[in-house]
């Protein structure tokens, strides 16, 4: 089996597995964030649960972290390998004649997502870790003890226009990444059959609607506090 993970197809397969996990996570993340628009109290409750449940914190969170790191590290490894597979480049190459821009530029859309993720971690994840595990405050309450802090922190974060702009841009790149990636992942695990045509439409819808949803949430909190 060790040969499997070193082989081109094995790597493609694990790349797709990490991508499936990320796409599932993204949907879950979206569902919870959308609660903040519908019902701040419910958002607070769910956030507190997710932030303190041991299964989520000590099992799923490390898996997610591994999934993200594996995905982009393997993405870079494959990109380097693929670039080195053509030493002399074409003087003229008409890529748009036979493939989409999204499919040819996964590394660039991915790179932008990575920059976004670093900022996103600094914005939300590192402060969470600090509050919970460094300062040891697992209560999830505001400093004055009047209710949960999650919704308030979210609203506060979405005040500066630069952050809104960056988030919107990040999700546009995510949409571009997924417009190719969603269906690509199925092909990578060998699923190309009579359902593929139908799945293409679903993939497009996912790739556009989910990132668009995140943008709507960010804009909602920016203009509605």
């Amino acid at each position: 089996m060790s040969g499997f993970f070193k082989s081109s197809i094995g790597r493609k397969f694990t790349m797709a597995l990490s991508a499936f996990f990320l796409m599932f996570f993204l949907l879950q993340h979206f569902a919870i964030n959308f609660l903040s628009v519908l019902n701040p109290d419910a958002f607070n409750e769910v956030s507190h649960f997710m932030g303190t449940n041991p299964l989520i914190q000590y099992v799923l969170q490390p898996v997610l972290l591994f999934g993200v790191v594996y995905h982009f590290v393997m993405g870079f490894i494959l990109e380097i390998k693929n670039r080195s597979s053509r030493v002399v480049k074409y003087a003229k190459n008409n890529g748009s004649a036979n493939s989409t821009w999204m499919s040819r530029n996964m590394i660039y859309s991915g790179l932008f997502i990575l920059i976004f993720l670093v900022i996103h971690f600094i914005d939300f994840w590192i402060p969470e870790l600090n509050t919970k595990y460094v300062q040891g405050d697992m209560s999830g309450l505001l400093a004055d003890g009047e209710g949960y802090r999650y919704y308030e922190e979210l609203q506060h974060k979405f005040l500066p226009p630069w952050r809104i702009a960056l988030y919107c841009l990040g999700f546009i790149f995510l949409a571009l990444h997924l417009l190719h990636g969603f269906n690509s992942a199925f092909q990578s695990v060998g699923a190309n059959n009579k359902y593929t045509k139908g799945l293409k439409g679903f993939g497009k819808a996912y790739a556009i609607l989910v990132p668009l949803g995140f943008i709507v949430i960010a804009l909602f909190h920016h203009f509605n506090h």
């Binding site: 081109s8 493609k12 693929n82 597979s85 890529g95 036979n98 499919s103 040819r104």
Partner: peptide, 18 residues
């Protein structure tokens, strides 16, 4: 065949479809 393909220095498919 896959091992030989990798050995020859071909790149890795990313399902572009070109």
């Amino acid at each position: 065949m896959v091992a030989q393909m990798d050995l020859e220095g071909f790149g890795n498919c990313t399902n572009i479809g070109a």
